[in-house]
Write a protein that binds this DNA or RNA. Sequence first.
DNA 1: ACCTGAACACCGTTCAAGT
DNA 2: ACCTGAACACCGTTCAAGT
Lengths: 197, 197
Amino acid sequence: MKQRPYHHGNLRTALLAQAERTVREQGVQDLSLRELAREVGVSHGAPRRHFPDRQALLDALAEAGFARLGAELSSAMEGAGEDFQARLRATAAAYISFATSDAALLELMFAGKHREQSGALHEASDRAFSVMLELIQRGQAEGVLERGEPERVGLVLFATIQGIAALVTGGMVGAEQLDELVVDAIAHFLRGSRVAA
Amino acid sequence: MKQRPYHHGNLRTALLAQAERTVREQGVQDLSLRELAREVGVSHGAPRRHFPDRQALLDALAEAGFARLGAELSSAMEGAGEDFQARLRATAAAYISFATSDAALLELMFAGKHREQSGALHEASDRAFSVMLELIQRGQAEGVLERGEPERVGLVLFATIQGIAALVTGGMVGAEQLDELVVDAIAHFLRGSRVAA
DNA sequence: ACCTGAACACCGTTCAAGT
DNA sequence: ACCTGAACACCGTTCAAGT
């Protein structure tokens, strides 16, 4: 029954995992480095080796969040078959699902963007958004979306999806209106995008 | 040169004003009741009479935020002449201007919604959004927007505007792309809304 | 009715010291 | 290389006491 002299294999990973849980259940405000250390079983000074300060931990959380978001978007998109509209709907639903189950984390991910990019954070966020861009390009190839830079064409779509997520997590839209709103918004977007002819 | 025995006229108002400034300049995280009291010149226990705890101050900030947002939206709308599209653009611009100059406050306003409504907070937010609803109804009357409950028709529009604000404050869209994006989004929305015939 | 000031438990951060 | 534990300055919250 001896105590491990230091810590199990990877303190960094353990801290991140516990932090993600705490953020989801209690929000970012209530995330305390000292409590985290306690829960993981190390002294309050130990996290410092891995995260110089609280902000460093938050940045790492954001980076991990982008990685997971990218994976979930891309798996939703690929699991939706070949039809463009089905793919679009599935990807939007996956984004909103992430945004509502991890609202505090997503807020963190957005907030982290205006700080000095940690490099890794920026790359992780680019990878996540590349899934959306891929989708836009496909829509353009099929002639359903207007031509032009995918970044620009996709911006209105992405803004709408992000806004819906904000409305839901903000309590302005109930969960029961969500599906209808997504379908509505996408139909709206596609109607607005169809080339005149 | 005697010190005022207690405080000048209205401690509550002074605290709120200073808090709004701090939130704008430093964010919500750095808002400290003790520092606020110091800046306003009272002891750290004094705010308690007016705000039982930190959350009560945040709720009051959110309520004041909704009041100001409503006023700014409504003044933007009325100052834009009679043309519906001009009014829509002006109102959207006013919303995004509020969202970007007071990003932390807006976040607070959205976050406050899922807590137990303080009543006053709920009313203030309703009044702010009623400006948007009025606009939608006008669009419907002019036949530019589809019929149906204004709340439902306006939701996609509001989501898009809110999403654009989030993209800007999140740093995904630069200030120089903002105007183009707003025009784009509104044109997109109106195209998507036009009745088939 | 409104404010003060001591007290308590909690934080983030720093840093010498241990293994 | 990684972790401990004391120390410091700061918080939010509570509450008896002052005017």
